[in-house]
Each structure stands twice: as C-alpha cells, then as structure tokens.
Simulated scan of single mutants.
Amino acid sequence: MRDQHRTTDLYAILGVRPSATTEMITSAFRARVRELRPDTRVDTDTAERYGRLRAAYDTLRDPGLRAAYDREHTVPTPNPAPARPVHRVAAVRVDGGVPPEPPLRVGPVRWERRA
C-alpha cells in the first residue's frame, strides 16, 4: 500500500485539490462512490477502482496519515497556460497630444433587485 502512494496521486483519485478540507474530501468520496454503484456500472474493474478510492479516502481523511502522505508525496503541478499576448491599439496622436480615451470603460458591477 505504501508503494502505491508513491506512484499515484490520492488527491487526483478523489478529484480534489491538496488544499481541500475534510468535508470536501468526504463529499468527493461520496460522489465518486455513487458513480461506482454496481446498478449503474457494468465494468469488471469496479471493485479495483473502489479499492483505490477507499484507500485514498482512508488516507486523506485522517489528519496524521494525510500529513505523512503530504510529506512523502510531491503533488505534480499542471503546466501553466502560456501567457497570451495582449494586443493593444497604440493611441498615438500625430500632433503629440494626449491620447484619446479608450473606447470602453469598465466600472463596478451593480446589482438591482427586481420586485
């Protein structure tokens, strides 16, 4: 079991982030168990997937085991999305004066209640 923890990401098995609270872990576990119900799935690997799911849940819900897992395991970070270049229209005046106002101004969002 301990070797399995080094090769798999328990947070990914449950579908939560490493900063997830215990309540979030429990909620994710219950949602995943609902997906593996035998009356909705007809896979042969359901028992194996449930075993991995249960092992991940048992490890991450216990604060001591979770701290030990976090010390041993480095969570892979996804590659950040490449920065998209921002295309701006250069507002240059021929006479060297102040550039004009931008065509769109964004202000605070205001919510209105409708009766």
Rank of each mutant, 00 (worst) to 15 (best):
2 R>K: 10
78 P>W: 01
18 P>S: 05
77 T>F: 11
65 L>R: 14
56 A>Q: 04
107 G>H: 01
30 R>E: 09
27 S>A: 10
64 G>S: 12
61 R>T: 08
18 P>C: 01
95 D>F: 04
42 V>Y: 12
35 E>P: 00
97 G>I: 00
6 R>G: 14
36 L>V: 06
60 L>C: 07
74 T>A: 14
5 H>W: 07
107 G>L: 08
115 A>T: 14
114 R>T: 12
34 R>D: 11
46 T>R: 14
55 A>V: 01
52 R>E: 15
2 R>T: 13
97 G>F: 00
11 Y>W: 01
96 G>E: 09
115 A>K: 10
80 P>D: 00
94 V>A: 15
35 E>H: 06
45 D>C: 04
45 D>F: 13
24 M>I: 04
98 V>D: 12
66 R>Q: 02
58 D>C: 10
26 T>G: 05
96 G>A: 04
30 R>I: 10
105 R>S: 11
59 T>C: 12
33 V>I: 09
108 P>C: 09
8 T>C: 13
99 P>F: 10
66 R>P: 03
51 G>N: 14
12 A>M: 09
10 L>N: 03
94 V>F: 14
23 E>Y: 05
50 Y>H: 09
14 L>H: 03
92 V>C: 09
10 L>M: 09
5 H>Q: 09
84 R>S: 10
36 L>P: 06
111 W>H: 14
21 T>K: 13
89 V>D: 10
99 P>Y: 07
43 D>N: 13
69 Y>V: 04
60 L>T: 00
80 P>L: 07
63 P>C: 04
16 V>F: 00
106 V>R: 11
24 M>S: 11
104 L>V: 13
20 A>E: 00
64 G>Y: 07
32 R>F: 00
47 A>N: 14
37 R>W: 07
113 R>K: 14
77 T>R: 14
80 P>N: 02
89 V>K: 14
13 I>W: 01
66 R>H: 04
10 L>Q: 03
54 R>C: 12
46 T>I: 07
11 Y>V: 03
98 V>K: 09
34 R>S: 07
3 D>Y: 08
25 I>C: 03
46 T>F: 02
25 I>H: 04
95 D>A: 03
53 L>E: 15
107 G>W: 04
80 P>S: 03
90 A>N: 09
94 V>M: 15
45 D>L: 11
58 D>P: 06
113 R>Y: 12
92 V>L: 12
52 R>V: 00
67 A>V: 00
109 V>T: 13
29 F>M: 05
33 V>H: 06
6 R>T: 14
27 S>H: 06
111 W>T: 15
17 R>F: 01
61 R>P: 00
84 R>Q: 04
61 R>I: 08
54 R>W: 11
78 P>M: 02
47 A>H: 15
112 E>N: 13
51 G>I: 05
26 T>Q: 07
100 P>S: 10
11 Y>I: 02
82 P>L: 07
50 Y>T: 09
111 W>P: 14
20 A>Y: 00
81 A>V: 06
66 R>C: 02
8 T>L: 10
105 R>N: 09
113 R>S: 15
112 E>W: 06
